[in-house]
Nucleic acid binder design. Structure first.
Lengths: 202, 202
DNA sequence: TAGCAAGTTGACCGACCGGTCATCTTATGC
DNA sequence: GCATAAGATGACCGGTCGGTCAACTTGCTA
């Protein structure tokens, strides 16, 4: 799932441990948020703590690696959708994929990681620019209001996930409902609103 | 600003320190999030660390006191708006006040505090019920879609603030823009959309 | 104004954190 | 199969955290 370009031909065990570490860190950060400890991540990956620091000099660097891979994956999705024949549907599709990927993710995670690390900032800006194009096409097609910008959409991506996450035990697809509501808010008047999924929380 | 019912006639200095502590804690949590330390809070209030623990047995208890006061303040606002002649405008007004109060607030703050402490849960449920009534009136007045529930609105309150907070240096009223977008998503088709504030971020 | 309970304080505790280092292990090129 | 450099490891460090405690100070009351 996590695709990273290895800096320079790693030894076989090192390469394996690096992947193990990234996977374990991802899970641990999802479960515990930004406060997940390096020791726990190492334990989950089945390696010693010092091994983590051999691969990632600081905790921030580890976080940046994960966040960066998320950003570039989303950029790839957005790029693909730029070819779509229906720009409005393409935008909705992108929002759905993005929100789905963000699910359960501690969002302050992405936030703090986006500041400071220049590589991550570059990847984020690349994603931002691609979303801009996606929104522009949707706007030209009349699928969103004229005054909606790419930044608006970029910022609103996580809103539905966050809203749904506020419930102690939210239905697993509640975020789709809120994504629908927000997407409707982006549409020009007169356009057909989405049929919302039923409110299925308990 | 913070109104709490003192358990039993505190000594004058103790009562003063308690208020100083609550104010300092509020500021510190806003600035540093959930990770703000008791020592920093004590320093800000001008008292020793041990004094904090005399007033609040644990950090969680201090957090619960703050969050609880926020919830009850919002409930009071919502109750007042139940008397309003225009249910749709009343709902929008409530959302605006709630989002404004949430601004700069670390939202995981409210989230984690809402779990575990029974007093806070009770206050939250009370707010939830009041918002339910507010939404029901708006729905009957045709100001929101028929399928929108109080829970929907309750959960979506923080979405605009969160979205705006994602930017490194957001314009101070960017959240109003996103509140407008989301509110539009709640409205039945045919109703007039809000004129959105201009996207004034830099 | 004297006595005392209520309140305050700084020193202290154990746990845990991110990060380091000297030493041991192992994959790999010859 | 061996030399060696890349990698792994556990013990360890300084710092910070939430929380405790015995000793001290202060507001209240009779």
């Amino acid at each position: 799932m996590i695709v990273t370009t290895p800096a320079r031909s790693l030894r076989a065990d090192a390469a394996r441990n690096r992947e193990l570490l990234l996977a374990a860190a991802e899970e641990e950060f999802v479960e515990r948020g930004l406060d997940a400890s390096i020791a726990d991540i190492a334990r989950r990956a089945g390696v010693a703590k010092a091994t983590v620091f051999r691969h990632f000099a600081t905790k921030e660097e580890l976080i940046a690696a994960i966040v960066g891979s998320h950003f570039s994956a989303l950029t790839a999705v957005a790029r693909g959708l730029l070819e779509s024949a229906d720009p409005g549907a393409a935008l909705l599709e992108f929002l759905t994929v993005a929100a789905d990927g963000l699910q359960q993710q501690d969002l302050t995670f992405l936030q703090t990681a986006s500041e400071g690390d220049s590589t991550v900032i570059a990847l984020r800006d690349e994603l931002h620019a691609t979303v801009d194009s996606l929104v522009e096409r949707a706007r030209e097609a009349g699928a969103v209001r004229a005054d909606i910008t790419g930044t608006d959409v970029f910022l609103l991506i996580c809103a539905p996930v966050h809203a749904a996450g506020f419930l102690p035990r939210p239905a697993p697809d509640l975020w789709r409902r809120y994504l629908g509501i927000i997407f409707d808010g982006l549409r020009p008047e007169g356009a057909n609103p989405l049929p919302l999924p039923a409110p299925s929380w308990s």
